[in-house]
Nucleic acid binder design. Structure first.
Lengths: 295, 295
DNA sequence: CTTTATTCATATCATAAGGATTTCTTTGGT
DNA sequence: ACCAAAGAAATCCTTATGATATGAATAAAG
């Protein structure tokens, strides 16, 4: 059973002639005869009544005609619906990211990508790096922006942004000129971000300075910590990224000594097919790297 | 573009595997690979994302999936609709009916229709009117014989048989000459048929006589009630139809007063194409009406 | 002792070549 | 104007082969 057979049948029924139907389909007349014959055999019903030089649908043919027209129409609709996807006008990119990178980095990149590809459908899922990377491997995400290192055999990681960690204090607090070191910070009330790679690198940095991290409080939200520090409840070590924009009038910020950076990586599956939308998003992210955080 | 290609695509998308889809279609895996590839080339869109050893639909594929499913369904409908036309004489009529009408009315009609059209394939489904009519609307039945009234916007109802309800008593019981009325029957042990339109009209008849129906027992089978009454366990009100033939030597039957009839209707979908087989069956049913129940 | 690489076997999809089937055209009737 | 038969063309399937990812087992490191 074939689309061509159905199409030919419709043509024959409408035109009342095998020859005319053949012409319309750019075929020879015997080909159409055969198609109709096969269709009739397949369905076990006579579809076209051949009377003299006229061809008329039987009652069965008449009924099939409505079905055939619908099927052909459906097929045309299906093809039609693929047009936006073709030529990469439409697309979907599912991004996974940490909260900080999402708030301060992705909006720029997303708006850039959308500007170049308005039909693009972008969704973002916030989560910790482990979950995000698992989803990426399961292909329920297309792209991840997480703090490195990112393990995973099937993943391809590209460092694209260096984010300097800053000591943060309430406005007016005394800040060492060269920047605070582990020993200095260990004497302060420390509010730190719980879990994740960032937390781990802070721990390593402290222990490299001979100090064991003993935070006064831990919080799951960088934004919350900023508010608490601004309210004078203590110090913190936060990604410079999160201090770019606001709250500078209530906060004292300074790079720590020795310098400590976290590297953000773009992660995709190694065997991922790069759609145009995905390429646009990655390009936009790389450009965001080129434009370092403004004061 | 092929039905097989669409079918394979649907299978791959649903199973998430080329190999499994191939197995289901009794093909080899490369055949399915090729089908998907051709489909993708034809539409100019990537439909299945091959990632690792998994296969899942792209957004475009997801959209095509709904169309493909519809097309395949339409095709099945088309084939299905040709079955009644097959080989001219033969055909299929699926009848739905209540149990009483089935036992005492349909055999005659069916045998008449079969006599005129030996190749006709007739199936009967017994059920309550609600289920039967729902199936009729869903086109999984072609014809229904149920007690009226039958609601349903898309249904066409034709009354074709009047069935008088009779009071039934054990042989030798005293029966009022003019027939028993509600007041008389309310003093007897009543066994009634549970549910359905017949039950409802009995209730209405009783309350019209100022009596509330208080059955001693209820049963789902008219035949069972007949046996129980014959055994002397009580009285009942039953369709005259069910008393036509047998048990007259163990039962006393008499029309109730005032007269109470239930109307049986032939129901078909309004837009139903009347095949020859269906016409024959309906004609046979109408003739059965013309021949009223013999004593 | 748990966690992290490495290795090997296995399962899956892609590709290529050969062959079988289908389908079309040509030619000659009815 | 349609049907039938035979050869030609195209399509489609299968077998064989290769590439890649996955999972388990093993080795190495913190």
């Amino acid at each position: 059973m074939n689309f061509d057979q159905l199409q030919s049948f419709v043509h024959v029924a409408e035109l009342g002639s095998f020859t005319a139907a053949a012409e319309m389909a750019a075929l020879t007349q015997p080909a159409v005869s055969l198609q109709i014959k096969l269709l009739e055999q397949r369905l076990g019903v006579r579809l076209i009544e051949r009377v003299g030089r006229r061809a008329q649908p039987t009652p069965a043919g008449l009924e099939l005609l409505t079905h055939a027209r619908r099927i052909i129409q459906e097929l045309a609709d299906a093809e039609e619906s693929m047009v936006p996807h073709r030529s990469g006008v439409a697309g979907r990119v599912r991004i996974g990211s940490g909260a900080t990178a999402f708030i301060h980095l992705l909006p720029l990149a997303i708006s850039k990508a959308k500007a170049r590809m308005p039909g693009l459908d972008i969704t973002v899922r916030i989560g910790n790096a482990g979950d995000i990377l698992r989803d990426l491997e399961a292909n329920s995400l297309d792209l991840a922006v997480v703090t490195m290192p990112a393990s995973g055999r099937s993943l391809e990681v590209e460092a694209f942004y260096e984010d300097e960690l800053m000591a943060v204090a309430p406005k007016g607090a005394e800040m060492p000129a060269a920047g605070p070191d582990p020993a200095f910070l260990s004497k302060k009330t420390l509010l730190v971000y719980e879990g994740g790679n960032t937390r781990r690198s802070i721990e390593e940095w402290m222990s490299a300075g001979g100090i064991r991290l003993k935070p006064a409080m831990e919080f799951g939200s960088v934004e919350a910590i900023k508010e608490l520090v601004a309210a004078g409840l203590g110090w913190s070590i936060l990604p410079g990224l999160s201090l770019k924009r606001d709250r500078t009038d209530f906060l004292e910020a300074c790079p720590v000594r020795p310098k400590l950076v976290r590297r953000l990586g773009i992660v995709v599956r190694r065997d991922k097919h790069l759609t145009r939308g995905l390429r646009e998003v990655i390009k936009a992210l790389r450009e965001t790297k080129a434009a370092p955080p403004s004061p």
